[in-house]
């Protein structure tokens, strides 16, 4: 499989399929399902943003919950305290905060510690952010921020009232589709290919003139700021922001989506997030097993299907195809 020839038609038809599916939901399902569907869309961004750093640049972070929480708190605080600000500015501020946190974490740790060590450091930084959130008065301490209203977007001529009906849901779908497309461009273009080189063989990449520290840092900052954007979009959807968002256990979510769907595929985390959403819905009556479900599922995937669902499908397809087209080998 070459990475130098990208076929946008395939990506855009899959994305259109996902968006179409999401748009049907409010017409056929109840409010609970619509809420869950919005969360899944945000989780798709959460998962892919993680995987952009993980699969493409080889950066394992256990701190993505902190980026999400920082984005959510930033939006929550600005909406409740500074509600004269346009929503777009609030989103940009959230992305900026997430990016800044990623930049600081990366500058502190990325160059010195790789792989496992970096992961532990992100966990420690995440714990620090969690403590701070729980102790800062203006962030509502243990209770978090409540009354995070859905905003009105003023476009000059028309006003979009996102508080009305399912308006905010459609806003989520549109903005998530946009973010996914943005990440797909970063994944597929020259930048993505050079990241892949950095992950594949840092020494070789460096002797192609690639500044590998800088590339990794950029990947982490992109991942952090897009994750923070997902958090900022989430805040008015849930209308409440709590410290649980920054808890270490929440950082397992993007990992689970990624590994469940297949980290080698751009849309792997999307598939994982959707599957997990379905599973979460199916087990909603079993209170108190969510940790067991997330942990057990992640463990099972790592142990038995390391390629994820898409990897499994891919190898099954290859096995089905192999005997029927023996000519492929001869055509070198």
């Amino acid at each position: 499989m070459t990475i130098a020839r990208v076929r946008p038609a395939i990506f855009f038809s899959l994305l259109a399929l996902l968006v179409a599916g999401a748009l049907i939901v409010p017409h056929v399902a109840n409010r609970g399902v619509v809420f869950l569907s919005g969360v899944v869309a945000i989780n798709v961004v959460f998962g892919i943003a993680f995987n952009l750093a993980f699969a493409k640049a080889g950066i394992l972070s256990f701190g993505n919950a902190m980026f999400f929480a920082v984005g959510a708190y930033c939006a929550g605080y600005l909406i409740t305290q500074q509600n004269h600000l346009p929503f777009v500015v609030i989103l940009l501020a959230a992305a900026g905060c997430g990016g800044l946190l990623a930049l600081v974490t990366g500058l502190l740790a990325l160059r010195r510690a790789s792989g496992v060590y970096f992961a532990v450091i992100t966990l420690a930084v995440g714990a620090l952010v969690h403590v701070l959130i729980m102790k800062l008065n203006f962030l509502g301490r243990n209770d978090g921020l409540v009354g995070v209203n859905r905003p009105i977007i003023d476009l000059g001529l028309v006003e979009l009232d996102l508080a009305r009906g399912d308006a905010y849901y459609y806003f989520i779908i549109a903005s998530c589709a946009l973010l996914v497309t943005l990440m797909w461009v970063l994944w597929s273009n020259r930048f993505g290919r050079s990241l892949q080189g950095v992950k594949s063989d840092p020494m070789r990449a460096s002797f192609l003139g690639i500044d590998i520290d800088r590339k990794r840092l950029i990947a982490l900052v992109l991942s952090g700021s897009i994750t923070a954007l997902a958090g900022a979009i989430y805040a008015p959807w849930a209308q409440i922001v709590t410290p649980e968002l920054a808890h270490w256990s929440f950082s397992t979510m993007p990992l689970l989506f990624t590994l469940l769907g297949g980290s080698a595929f751009f849309l792997g985390p999307a598939v994982g997030a959707i599957l997990f959403g379905l599973l979460d819905y199916a087990t909603r009556s079993l209170i108190g097993i969510s940790d067991l479900l997330v942990g057990g599922l992640l463990l099972a995937v790592v142990l038995s299907v390391p390629g994820g669902v898409l990897g499994l499908l891919g190898s099954l397809l290859a096995r089905v195809r192999a005997p029927s087209s023996p000519r492929r080998e001869g055509r070198a």
Binding site: L256, S290, D291, L292, L293, V294, G295, G296, L299
Partner: peptide, 8 residues
């Protein structure tokens, strides 16, 4: 993941 399972 195992830590989360223990929690659960």
């Amino acid at each position: 993941a195992l830590l989360l399972v223990c929690d659960g």
